[in-house]
Each structure stands twice: as C-alpha cells, then as structure tokens.
Design a protein around this nucleic acid. Structure first.
Lengths: 195, 195
DNA sequence: ACCTGAACACCGTTCAAGT
DNA sequence: ACCTGAACACCGTTCAAGT
C-alpha cells in the first residue's frame, strides 16, 4: 500500500470531513491509510505542512473562474467562492484561516482579490488592506458558522444564555462584503471625510 | 499553597505571556502554581473554560471608557482599545478570538460595539453585522501581527518567498476600520446603490 | 474548599532499519 | 522512494482519596 503525497492529502480531506479538525491526527490518518504514522513524515515535514496542503486542496477544489464583470462584482464573486469552498468541508474555514495565518498556504484568494482590486481603480496599498479586510471577514464569519453547526449537532457548548450568533448567514455575509466595498467605492471616489 | 480561581487566571496570563499559547498547558500551569494538574479541575471544568476566563481577563484589564464623542468616533475607539488589549499579551488576539468563536467568552467588545452603533442611527440588525465585521477584522489582523512577531523572533516559518504581511500595522488597522465605517455611513445616508 | 496520586487514553516527532 | 518498529517526551481528563 504505497502512497503518493496527493493520496495523503485526499485522504486527509476525507478524515477532516468525517471527524473534524480536532480528530485529524497523524495517527488516525496513518491508520486510515493502512500505514504507520511515521510514514507520513516521508511526505510532509510536519503536521502544519500537511494542513497547509489540505488548505490549498480545499481552495483549488472550490476554485471558480471570475465572472466577466466589473471589479466590484468580481470582488464579491471572489469572496463568495472562498466562502463556499470553505463551507464545503467540515472545519474548512478554520483549516484555511490557520494555514493563512502561519503563512504556509491559502494564498490564492488573497492574490486573486488583490488582482481584481488593482485591476480596478484601487491603489496597490489600499488594495492590499481591502483584500485583508475582506478575507478576515469572510473566513472569520465562515468559522463562526461552522462552529455553530457542530455546536448544534453535538449537545456541546454552554446551555442557558441565548446564542447571539443565530442568524441568516448568507445574507449576513453579503451585507458585510457590500459594506466594505461601499466604503471602498466612497474612498476611491474621493468622498473620504477623515484625512 | 491553596489558590482561588482568580489566582489561577492571573498565573495563566503570566505563563501565556512568557511561553505562548502552545505552551500554556494544564500541566505547566499546575507546575507554575506548585500544584498537580488535576487540581486545576477544581476551578475550571476544562481547559477551554480556563482559556475563556483568560480571554475575559485580557479584555477587562485593557478596558477603556468610551470617549465623549459621536458614535463613529466611539466605534473607532472601541476597535483600537480591543486591538491594544489583545496586543498587550503574547498570543492575546488568538486567545480572545478562540474564546469568542466557541461562544465561551470575549463578549464585551461585541456588546460595546453594538451599543455604540445602535446609539447612533444604525438599525439593530445592521449594527450586529457591522460589529461582527469590525471584530473579525480587528482580531484577525491582530492575530496576523502577533504571528509575524513570533515568526520573526524564532527563525521559524519557511525561508525564501517574500513575506506579503510586512506592513505598518497601526496605519493598516486604522484604514480597515475607517473603510467599514465609511461604508456604513454611506449606507445609513441611503447612498447604497445595490438593493 | 482545595488538593494529591495514579491512572487512562491519547498526542507529534525522530530515527535506525528494512524493501 | 516509501515504509516499519520502537522509542521519546509530552498532552487533557477522571476519580477515589486525603485535609
């Protein structure tokens, strides 16, 4: 039962979806592949590198071509594609956000967004800030969403105290993204009032 | 050496700042307090509950009164206070963001922001979305900042490949927050073009 | 009320050695 | 190139029992 790097990533994705990130251990993944845990270190330097590869796989599997439209519409589409890609796998948002945070993977959405924004009228430095703002929002929101999902399925999390996160998530994300883009539009048009 | 709940939280904060979140283990904290790890379970149901208390402690120690100003200025101040509170402790942002994500603590900044926004002209549902957008951005950005800090001190993280996160963080956060607030101002004024 | 001691069921990672 | 076997140095958590 010899495996390639890609087999390991693909199986890790299945384990992630079935058991969640907390139970995606090197030992369990090894067992799932019919292999000793130590064998995984032939393919990846450590668990963090494995997870970065999983993050990139999540993103590439969920990749969509940008619509043939203005940059604002493209930015919106890019954000929604990222969200959908993450939500397609259990704990997908957390995996992508963590890999991004450690600078080990998940760069594609950032690059795409910066490209879209600079393709518009947006200055390079502002584009970088806006891209980060959007990514933090979309990923943070998707994480909230997925955590609630598992909090609902398990009886976990503190009972009592009304959950302030109960919401229509799709509408919420659209509003949040539009808010940032509206702010950007105002700023690009020179409407900014605070110097 | 008998301790109260507050002693444990205070010491956990010291361990966090000295060793980082990854090394804030129940065993190490026990050792630091001169106590068996099992003794901590008299004060907290589990590690997650401990970390939630640590998050709340970080926030309450960094709390500032809101300025006597308009709601927009207050929202800005609230965001910066949150950022400063988190940056005052090693891995502080991650601790707060995680507690928030699990719904176990760190609610104060959200409540404050929603209060400020609804105190302005902002409708309740929009206020909730804006508050979440701002929190995700500020915490996400602070996490990036702190991860870079430790990536710089340790020789960790992949060499080669220019780091796209090298930035002036204070200016960046101000820009990001202002962007969202500008978008909100436009929307409240009825300038939104997408229905 | 607060803590000990011992155990249970796990982790990630390394490394010599095998094929 | 890919894997085994065994070890190392850890984890969080439980629980009877002590003071």
């Amino acid at each position: 039962m010899r495996h390639h790097r890609q087999d390991v990533v693909a199986r890790a994705l299945v384990v992630l979806d079935d058991y969640g990130l907390a139970d995606l251990t090197m030992r369990r993944l090894g067992t799932e592949l019919g292999v000793q845990p130590s064998a995984l270190y032939h393919h990846f330097a450590n668990k963090q590198a494995l997870l970065a590869a999983v993050a990139d796989e999540i993103l590439s599997r969920g990749a969509r071509p940008l619509p043939d439209a203005g940059w604002e519409e493209q930015a919106r589409a890019s954000c929604h594609a990222l969200r959908d890609a993450c939500l397609a796998w259990r704990d997908g948002a957390e995996v992508v956000a963590t890999a991004r945070a450690f600078g080990l993977g998940g760069r594609a959405p950032y690059d795409e967004l910066v490209g879209v924004l600079t393709g518009g009228d947006v200055d390079g430095e502002l584009a970088a800030t806006v891209a980060r703002t959007l990514l933090h929002y979309v990923l943070g929101h998707a994480m909230d969403e997925q955590l609630q999902r598992q909090a609902g399925s398990a009886g976990a999390l503190h009972a009592g105290a009304a959950n302030p996160l109960a919401h229509d998530h799709t509408a919420d994300v659209t509003t949040g993204v539009d808010l940032v883009l509206t702010g950007l539009r105002a700023r690009v048009a020179g409407t900014s009032s605070t110097p």
